[in-house]
Amino acid sequence: MVNQDLRKEAHDVEVTVWVGKSGHGAVLEELKTQLQDRKLVKVKFLRASRGGTSVEEMAEELAENAGAEVVDTRGNTAVFH
Rank of each mutant, 00 (worst) to 15 (best):
A10V: 14
R47T: 15
S22M: 12
L6K: 11
R74D: 07
L35F: 04
H81K: 15
R50V: 08
T33R: 10
R38G: 05
E64T: 13
D37T: 08
V71P: 02
E56L: 03
V15P: 10
V15N: 05
R74K: 11
K44P: 07
E60D: 12
E30I: 05
V79I: 14
G20K: 14
K32G: 03
L28E: 06
M1D: 12
S54N: 01
N76Y: 01
R38E: 12
R38A: 10
E60C: 09
V55H: 00
H81R: 15
V17G: 05
Q36S: 06
A66R: 04
T77P: 03
E69C: 06
V15K: 02
G51H: 09
V13A: 01
G75H: 01
V13S: 00
E60I: 09
W18C: 05
M58S: 00
T73C: 04
R38N: 15
S22W: 10
A26D: 13
Q4V: 09
E9L: 09
A48P: 10
T16H: 03
L6G: 07
V27G: 00
E14D: 12
R74T: 09
S22I: 12
A48F: 02
V71D: 00
T77I: 10
D37G: 07
D12V: 03
L46N: 13
A59I: 08
G67H: 11
H11A: 10
T73V: 12
M58A: 03
S22Y: 14
V17P: 06
R74C: 04
V55M: 01
H24R: 10
V27P: 06
E56W: 05
A63P: 08
A48S: 13
N3Q: 13
A63C: 05
A78D: 06
M58D: 02
V55F: 01
E29N: 14
D37V: 08
M1F: 05
